Simulated scan of single mutants.
Amino acid sequence: MTLAYLDRFLNSLGIAAEFRGIFWVLVILGLTALVALVLARILVAIERRLSANDNLWDDVFLHAARRPVYWYVWLHGIYWATEVGQRFYEVDHLGLNDPILRFGFIVLLVWCLLRFVGQAEELLTSDRVREPMDYTTVSAMGKLARAVIIITAALVLIQNLGYSISGVLAFGGVGGIAVGFAAKDMLANFFGGAVVYMDKPFKVGEWIKSPDASIEGVVEHIGWRITRIRTFESRPLYVPNAIFTTIGVENPSRMQNRRIYEVVGVRYGDVAVVESIVQAIRAMLESHEDIDQDRTLIVNFITFNASSLDIMIYTFTKTLQWVEYHRVKEDILLRISGIIADHGAEVAFPTRTLHLQQNTSQEPAHAGLVPAGTESGTNQGAQGEE
């Protein structure tokens, strides 16, 4: 039984065209809902089935296409319901049905592609792949892919609306000059972001700081215009990307080791044991399990300071973790303090020795005062000599 025969049968029963139109619209929408529901269940079942295999990209594609395909069925159902309604009610839809169908198809296709890009970003940076890619690189590729998809879709829509793409592109070339002058700062930030993506001086999750600007913290997000940095006070810092092309950026997250650099001074009275102290400290560091022996290790007596004999300690730890580094540094400083004490020496601190000159001549009592300039204060490191 064809639909035309069924419609003639309804007409023979005396049912008015208005009611027959409502009936057919409801039938089409009901069938659309049924087909969409069945198709959605089938796609979900296929997606579960494919998730069991080793190919991850079919899961990504199917998950990205599932919802757009569902709404594409509804788009066609509404299209045919509108066509049927127009025949029964003789309503002029101004020929918009076909353009709306094409417009809807392009929108759903763009939605599907954007979902695919988002799913691909998650997959490439996850542990499900053998070698996860850098988040910053994947994010840059994703943004570029989204821009290409949206621009291409916009040009296709313009073409479908009856406008000439060549004219639009020509206008864009002329207008681009004016936009470039009006938005030069924004363009500078855009190209600054592109430089960051290409040169990769830092990425999301790394600690950076600049000796040329008050910038220090952990990178949270790299956008096309600004980069968001979380400072160590847990405050967000928004930096325009153009700044990174004019300042130096230090990336401590990529250091190979953490350095310990200390100068320890002993008293001048301990000069006889300085060499032994230096040798003991050097031996302790060379046998320390947390010190990288492949890096520079220096322990030397370096200078006669104002109040101390200075010993320089210069070495590198194996750990890069901030908390662990301070634990290792604490252990080394305590061991150095113990070595100094074991040699009967002490750590020096700024002191002054005052020598008083005694006057032994027979003079009146009132003349026993020490003349000016007979007291001498000297900055020596020997402590307790008075």
Rank of each mutant, 00 (worst) to 15 (best):
L13A: 13
A145W: 07
V323N: 15
Y72D: 05
H355M: 05
A272I: 01
P211G: 03
T32W: 04
V138T: 07
S337H: 11
P236S: 06
E324V: 00
T378P: 06
R258I: 11
W111H: 05
V148L: 14
P132H: 02
W71A: 01
G104H: 04
N241Q: 08
L161C: 07
R20F: 01
L369E: 14
V195Y: 13
G192A: 01
R49Y: 06
T351Q: 11
L50F: 13
Q362N: 10
G14F: 09
L43N: 04
M186R: 09
V25D: 00
S361F: 07
W224N: 06
L39D: 04
A178S: 05
Y314K: 00
D292S: 14
V168E: 03
E90A: 12
V278D: 13
L43K: 11
Y135A: 06
S139E: 02
F9A: 07
H326C: 02
V195I: 13
P236W: 07
Q357H: 07
T125F: 10
V179K: 14
F304G: 03
A64M: 02
T125L: 13
L101M: 09
G95N: 12
G14H: 08
V156R: 04
H355E: 09
G192V: 02
L187C: 11
T32E: 06
G95E: 04
I15L: 12
A4Q: 10
Y197H: 12
V168T: 14
L187W: 09
Y79C: 08
I229L: 11
E131H: 08
D92K: 00
Y314G: 01
I260Q: 07
L108T: 00
T82Q: 02
F105I: 07
P201M: 04
L37H: 06
S126H: 06
V73K: 02
V274W: 07
V44D: 03
K143P: 00
A372N: 14
G104P: 10
G175P: 00
N305W: 12
R49D: 00
Q279G: 09
G193P: 12
G85T: 06
G248E: 11
I208A: 04
W71R: 02
N11R: 15
L10I: 04
N53F: 14
G381H: 01
M255V: 06
T315F: 08
H93N: 08
G162Y: 02
I22K: 01
V323E: 15
S234W: 15
Y261Q: 06
L62V: 15
V107C: 13
I247Y: 14
M186I: 10
G368D: 04
G338S: 15
A64E: 00
L334G: 04
E122F: 13
H221F: 09
V138I: 14
R235K: 12
M198K: 11
A183E: 02
S234P: 05
P211F: 05
P252D: 07
R295S: 05
R115G: 03
